[in-house]
């Protein structure tokens, strides 16, 4: 199965997002190239608003992730509650 990935700047804004992704996606793996956090996961990956909100203790608009997003792969779908990435193979 193909991996999808999502990469963020490695900073404080990204930390709860990374934590949420790792909590919600059991097979996701994070690596840390200089300045970055790259998360790879087989087939698909989901970023959930609720998980991030639980971690930060306040409302979070998912589109906020655009500020620190560096790159992604796979097909994307975003609504108010989650951003998902997946390959259809």
């Amino acid at each position: 199965m193909s991996n999808v990935f999502i990469v963020f700047q490695d900073n404080d804004d990204s930390r709860p997002i990374i934590e949420a992704i790792l909590a919600d996606n059991a097979q996701a793996q994070a690596t840390y190239p200089t300045g970055l956090v790259k998360i790879d996961a087989p087939g698909s990956l989901v970023v959930r608003r609720e998980t991030i909100e639980e971690l930060i203790g306040r409302p979070f608009d998912l589109q906020q992730i655009h500020v620190n997003l560096v790159t992604i792969s796979g097909h994307i779908d975003e609504d108010d509650d989650q951003l998902s990435l997946k390959w259809n193979n």
């Binding site: 190239p33 200089t34 300045g35 655009h66 997003l69 790159t71 992604i72």
Partner: peptide
């Protein structure tokens, strides 16, 4: 991505920052 990581590795804060800022639009 790798080039801007390289800029970070070489102490070039300014390039890393514009690079990643641009790249955030890139996605």
């Amino acid at each position: 991505v790798p080039f801007m990581s390289g800029a970070a590795h070489n102490g070039d804060m300014s390039t890393v920052t514009f690079g990643f800022s641009a790249q955030s639009d890139e996605s």
